[in-house]
């Protein structure tokens, strides 16, 4: 039987609201489970190690290249106005206010988000989550809560690290071209950085981390339809996280600018 356009649209709208309600229930369950014991400290430490430490090589490379290339690309424009000496200050503002948390979050959404989505999705379709439940373990607490806390904690730490590495990349380019010493680079870099810049960056990265964990876990934990579902969960974890990260970036910048 052919379905009418009206029927299809109403089904789609119905689907959107059902998903929103499911997400609401998922987050509500997270906040409930996170508060009450037992706490899965051992698994949390393992997840922090997997999400944080194992992301270091990729984050280091990306951060370093971002700082280096951004400095290199910005130099001609500033040099045109005879303002090449402002380079460390300009680069540090861009890195600390925007690039460090954003680049870290986008890298983590790709690496960590997809990993969480695929891992939980595969556990779901192979009944490992059910097996955990029948063996007297709360799988939501063991798998979801630990991963969401780990991303919420580790992404800000990784963002701070990205900022440091990006500034190191920037320093190498600056010192090669302007023969600037390390101490004067640091001094001019931090000259225009306020506490609000640092604070808003960390808050932003925390929000991004929570989003990556929540989206990855939600997609994986609710995946179905066998291996196709696992691929879909991993893919959605990345796409939805990135979309939300950009929305959050805009919102936080608006709020911080209003405060500033």
């Amino acid at each position: 039987m052919k379905k009418s356009g009206k029927y299809i649209i109403s089904k789609k709208i119905d689907g959107v609201f059902t998903t929103l309600y499911d997400v609401y229930r998922f987050l509500l369950r997270f906040f409930k489970e996170v508060l009450f014991p037992p706490y899965e400290f051992k698994e949390l430490v393992k997840q922090c190690y997997d999400i944080g430490y194992k992301s270091l090589p990729l984050i280091t490379l990306t951060g370093f290249i971002t700082g280096l290339v951004f400095t290199k690309q910005s130099r001609p424009s500033l040099a045109e106005f005879g303002a090449a000496s402002w380079l460390p200050s300009l680069v540090s503002i861009a890195i600390i206010r925007a690039l460090a948390p954003l680049v870290t979050a986008l890298i983590a959404a790709g690496k960590v988000g997809s990993q969480i989505g695929a891992e939980l999705g595969s556990m779901k379709v192979t009944e490992q989550i059910d097996a955990m439940e029948v063996s007297g373990t709360n799988p939501f607490k063991f798998l979801v809560v630990t991963r969401m806390i780990a991303t919420t904690f580790m992404i800000p730490i990784l963002a701070i690290y990205t900022g440091v590495v990006a500034l190191a990349g920037s320093f190498i380019n600056v010192t090669q071209n302007e023969q600037t010493s390390f101490s004067s680079f640091v001094e001019s870099s931090l000259q225009n950085i306020s506490f609000l810049d640092l604070f808003s960056s960390v808050i932003k990265a925390t929000l991004f981390g929570f989003t990556i964990g929540a989206v990855g876990c939600y997609q994986g934990y609710n995946s179905s339809k066998g291996t196709e579902g696992v691929g879909k969960a991993a893919n959605s974890a990345v796409v939805v996280s990135m979309f939300l990260i950009f929305i959050e970036e805009i919102l936080v910048v608006q709020v911080v600018n209003a405060i500033r």
């Binding site: 595969s122 556990m123 192979t126 009944e127 490992q128 059910d130 097996a131 955990m132 439940e133 029948v134 063996s135 007297g136």
Partner: peptide
Amino acid sequence: QLRLKIGFSFQNSALYD
């Protein structure tokens, strides 16, 4: 608590990968 008295052998074994 009740589940601890029940053993469930899954179709695909469901071993933790």
